[in-house]
């Protein structure tokens, strides 16, 4: 990384330490891994920038439902929302990874698709849609991928019941 430490954002708040940024987006570190926190509006533009910068491959895209965990640690200026979409990108030339965490409000779970830039995100976005109900605007084929087509609900949401069936011991002799 050439410009990890570059302070792209101007120091708007001189009293505090300016939050670290990368490509104009807030940057945090989690266990030594770089995490960017773009807003929904910044997301598409940031992806384009990153791809131009050598992050050619999308490794992973998944959703997280923070229904019961709004108090999680986020950089200042980012309001925690119920959903997050987490995108992992890799830069093969510099052997580096970047993680994007985008906050998605429950009321309007929509995010622009990464498909135009990263064709490999197709199945991942479908999976996220299937599991969390987060829609990806502009995705060519946003249908369920893992669950049956007529399934109701999105199973990985925290308010979706896990569907556990109490274990029965049918026909076991009980003559005690």
């Amino acid at each position: 990384m050439t410009d990890v430490d570059a302070q792209d954002g101007e120091a708007d708040t001189p009293t505090e330490i300016a939050p670290e940024t990368l490509f104009g987006t807030l940057l945090t570190r989690s266990h030594g891994q770089l995490v960017l926190h773009p807003t929904r509006e910044e997301y598409a533009g940031l992806l384009a920038t990153l791809q131009a910068d050598g992050y050619h491959s999308i490794i992973d895209l998944c959703g997280v439902d923070y229904l019961t965990n709004f108090s999680r640690e986020l950089p200042p200026g980012i309001t925690p929302e119920r959903f997050e979409v987490v995108v992992n990108l890799i830069n093969h030339r510099e052997h580096s990874r970047l993680r994007l965490r985008v906050q998605i409000p429950e009321s309007d779970p929509v995010l622009p698709t990464a498909f135009g830039l990263y064709a490999g995100s197709e199945a991942m976005e479908r999976e996220t849609f299937d599991m969390f109900g987060i829609a990806f605007e502009g995705h060519p084929d946003l249908t369920r991928i893992l669950m049956p087509e007529d399934w109701i609900g999105h199973p990985l949401r925290k308010d979706y019941d896990i569907g556990r069936i109490p274990v029965q011991f049918k026909g076991a002799p009980a003559n005690r």
């Binding site: 998944c62 997280v64 991942m124």
Partner: peptide, 12 residues
Amino acid sequence: PYRMHVRAPSFV
């Protein structure tokens, strides 16, 4: 784990 996700190579 609050969320456990596996990036499966076969899937991609």
